[in-house]
Structure formats: C-alpha cells, structure tokens
Design a protein around this nucleic acid. Structure first.
Lengths: 214, 214
DNA sequence: CCTGCAATAGTGGTTAGCCACTATTCAACC
DNA sequence: GGTTGAATAGTGGCTAACCACTATTGCAGG
C-alpha cells in the first residue's frame, strides 16, 4: 500500500509536534506538511493533495470541521481525521454528516490514532469508543423521529405537538390558538396516526421525549 | 491587599507556562509553585498554603476536582480556581457543591482568568458565562424537585415513579412488580400528594421532565 | 373545474389516570 | 403493646385523551 502522505494541523505547538513524532515513527508514513490554523491547513491540502489530513477541530480562523467540509465538498481524494477535546454530541453529529473518515478524542492514547490511520487507509471509518454511544439506539431513533415530525406534520400540527410537549391539555391549547377543543383533539388524532403511535398518552410521551428538540 | 501567592497546576506544559506567564505579569502576584499532576499540586498546597490555587480539572493521579474537594474539606484558607476544557454540566455542579471559588472554561481569554483572580481575592466567586446557564431557573428548580423525590418518597414509590417515567401504564407496572393495579394506582396517588402535583397526567409529566436523572 | 390537503368542528364510545375514600398486614420503634 | 409508616388491595366517580367516524370551508395545482 505504498507511501502515505499526511498533513497535521493543530494550533497547539506541543500537541502538534507530538502527533507528528508519533506518526512519523510508522515506516510507510511521511508528514508532508503541518499547519497551526485551519486556513493554512486548507491551503496545504489543496496544494499537496495528501492521502490523509489530521485536523484538530479547535483551531483559529477555520476550525477543523470547516476545513473538512470544504475539502470533502470539493471531492478531493484526501481523507479527513478529526481530533477534538470535547465529548459533545453536536460536533460529532455534524462531522459524521459531512462525511469525515475518522473522529478521535484527544485524551486517548496515540495508539488509537495509528489504528485510526490504518483503518482510514483501507477505506474504512474509525470513531473513538466514547462517541459510539451517539450513533446507535436512542439517538439514531430520536433523530429519525424528528425527521418524521419535520416531514410528515403540517405547521399547525407541529405547533400543537410543541404545546403538548409543554404539558398543556387540549382545552388549554384550544384557548391559546382560538379554536375548538374538538379541533385540537382532531389534530392530536391525525398526528398520532401519522407518527403511527398508539395507546393512552402516547402523544404526550412521544413529545416529551423529544423535549427541547422540537 | 498585599502580595498574592499562587500555585498553578496543569499537566499540559505549554498551557501551564502560558498561565504562569500571564499571571506573573500582575504586579501583586507571585507564583510560588507549579505542578503537573493533582497529587503534586495537593502536596504543594499543604506545604506552602498559597492564597489561590489554579487547578486544571483534567490531570493525572488526582483531578483538579479531587484536589479541590480535599483542600476545601480540610478547611484551608486557600481559594480554588478550577479550569476545564469541557462544557459539561455534571463536573460544574459537582464543583459548585464542593464550594470552589472560581470555575473557568479554558477556551476563554486570559483576561477572564485575571478578572477571576481579582474577584476571588476579594472573597467573591467567579464563573465563566458559559456555565451560568446551569445555575438559574430550570436546573435549580429541577434539583429541588429531585431533592423532594429523594427525601419524601419511599423505595417502592421511587421504583414506580421511575417506571412511570419510562412511559409504562399502571397495568404494566403491576405486572412487573407482581402486585394489583389498584396498589400501583394507590402509590401513584400517594406520590402525587407528596409532591403536591395536580391535574391529569401530572405524574407522567413530572417524571418525564426528570428523565435520566431518576 | 376538480382533486387533494389543511384546518376547522362535531358526535359517540372507550379507557387510563386522578381523586377520595376505607381496610388489612407487617415491621419498626418507643 | 400501642403507634406509626409502608405496602398491599378494593370501590366508586370523574375527566382528559384516544379512537373512529362525518362534514364543511378554503386554498393550491394539474
């Protein structure tokens, strides 16, 4: 699988040189450039077309995520591995949607980075175990449900669902919207059918599960 | 207000020296020691009794939070300022409960640290604006409600409340606990009374609001 | 023009959950 | 040995929410 050309970008000089040292120890890897901000990293990627770019997310001017989106959007062959300090969900999901090949937590051992590079080299993706919880079960299902809400429901239905999630009764909602309680009840029924829910209070349970996200 | 003796602890050499440089620029501040892990920081604090200890939370052996708890528990006069990368709620709440005087996000400007030191010197507390959202309104009320649940409810009642929060009906809960649905209903009634709730589905709403925290 | 969708409104029936009682058993505590 | 608290169980009444209908108005698109 020949020579792997890599670019490393991190605004932290110490961490950057640590990463460069570590990956340089691998026989088939050559670090062709390094950068201390996102803009410089992007320019180097365009100029040198490396196989892999290892980017810190938290960088000045352009974040690693910004660079990843630009590069991947322009359909270069360069694979992206993102590094971050933060164990937050939103960055991760954003990164996954933009199609990066690797996503690592900085705290983790350097071995994980090498493992990640090996994976990405062979066309796979690699994600730190800490983030895997964001992928499966609940959060997948949750965003799927949100998708359903956004696509299937009419504007009025969304408003009513929101009000239900705040714990309001049909009578209260009717008062707020200046319509008959029967109408609200009817909307409830339609929402329930569209989302394929059933059972008592199923709408209340559903809407409260989505909480802030509505 | 004389000379301020300060200890700085951070496992990241670069960041540590950055902090030391910055605070040393202040005329009335002397950095009397620095440490690269929590254990060393704790020993220095005990030995030197500084006015303020600036501790990174993420450190080997003992975390900054561990050190803070030990020091504050032993009623030394040393004030604690914690630094962290992570914008998570749990660490912050934990820190607030243990009584630290400052809590800062590392991303923020160095000016904030100096401002924080000035505040703490005068006996006040200082918290990065990013965390202030965790203090007021909702979360205060929420933990108050959690307190009520913990103190007022019997073990069985807590179990039933948990099951309600998962969206189960009285009949389902009765099956799970091998008791009569009437008993479950009775418990519901008692819980509702203890927590001073009222209205249809008030228990469901209440329990779902507490979500994971039960 | 007509079809379809959204929003409105109504009727009637079923049920889960809330509310207010009463009652028994058992264990703990003074 | 009486009191208290927890858990158990039951009855009867009430209502919000669900469910399944029907029906009208109005608007947008082919």
């Amino acid at each position: 699988m020949g020579q792997l050309n890599i670019i490393v970008a991190d605004d932290h000089p110490l961490y950057r040189s640590g990463v460069i040292d570590a990956v340089s120890k691998m026989p088939n890897i050559r670090v062709v450039a390094h950068a201390e901000n996102g803009m410089k990293a992007y320019q180097e990627i365009i100029a040198l077309r490396p196989d892999i770019a290892i980017l810190d997310i938290e960088m000045p001017i352009l974040s690693g995520l910004d660079v990843a989106k630009k590069v991947l959007g322009e359909k270069h062959q360069t694979r992206i591995i993102l590094l971050t300090m933060h164990k937050t969900k939103s960055f991760f999901l954003d990164a996954m949607e933009s199609g990066v090949q690797g996503y690592l937590l900085k705290d983790n051992a350097i071995e994980e980075l090498l493992q990640c590079i090996a994976s990405v080299e062979q066309g796979n993706t690699f994600v730190s175990p800490q983030f895997k919880g964001f992928l499966n079960n609940q959060d997948e299902a949750l965003s799927e449900e949100l998708q359903m809400v956004k696509t299937l429901l009419t504007p009025t239905e969304k408003v009513i669902l929101k009000l239900i999630s705040e714990g309001r009764t049909s009578a209260e909602i009717a008062d707020l919207l200046f319509v008959s309680p029967n109408t609200v009840d009817n909307h409830r029924s339609n929402i329930t059918k569209k989302l394929k829910l059933e059972g008592k209070n199923s709408l209340l349970k559903f809407s409260m599960r989505l909480q802030n996200e509505l």
